[in-house]
Amino acid sequence: MPVQDLQGKQVWQRNTGRESISHWIIWLIGVAIFAYCWQKISNSTTWFFVWDAPRIADDIWTRATPPRWEYIAQLGEPIWDTLNIATLGTIFSLILAVPIAFLAAHNTTPSKFFVRPIALLIIVSSRSINSLIWALLLIAIIGPGVFAGVIAIAIRSIGFCAKLLYEAIEEIDQTQVEAITATGASRWQVMAYGIVPQILPAFAGIAVFRWDINIRESTVLGLVGAGGIGLQLSSSLNVLAWPQVSLILLVILIAVIISEWVSAKVRGAII
């Protein structure tokens, strides 16, 4: 009741008295919790290491520079593997994501109560587990190597691609579909003429976007033994070969920049 009548005068305040007191109390509780947490964290931190951090970072920097350029000869194949893991993984995931997306979109699903929940479950479960964890599982199942990496990337990407694609399918202009249906077209023809042309730009955008993400994800898969440049990264880290680490990071950076440039070009060409 911000408007009050005080001796014939209309007074307006943002909050009533009781509201402002409760706001103050809420703020007080918040600050108290923050102070308590701060103290807890502070007690369990070895502050010596924190104060020491700049010196250590500087130390690593001097050890890592200059990069060991001649090591580049051994990086060609791993980075090529990494690119292949990302590309093949994306292609496999798209092949599987397209039918799942059609089953999940509520305007194309054959059954809202049975098939759609299953498709959505596949999407959610694929998205909820990180590709590094998928790779760990798959290495146990199919052994270490590039193939495990490809499958890990593919499984992780299915959910992402299918989700974005089914949202695109749900947003299509339904009158175009109606028009094709009205000509006497079959169900598959309606899909090929009424739906596919409408989602094609979204599909291409999703594909390059995911490929771009997968290049970054596949660089770390080697850390758990799933092939690619991550393998070199982990072995260099293990022997504290900092000049090699810095060169690997540089190569990854360049690969990511190139992939981003390519995907930007492709997206620009389609839309």
Binding site: Q176, E178, T183, G184, Y193, L200
Partner: peptide
């Protein structure tokens, strides 16, 4: 109009024949 916006004029006109031709021919 309900034309399929991303298809050519010819494809839009021919889509009127979808009831007469098979899937693969139309695809």
């Amino acid at each position: 109009y309900a034309l399929v916006e991303r298809l050519s004029v010819m494809e839009n006109v021919l889509s009127g024949r979808l009831g007469y031709v098979g899937f693969w021919r139309s695809f």
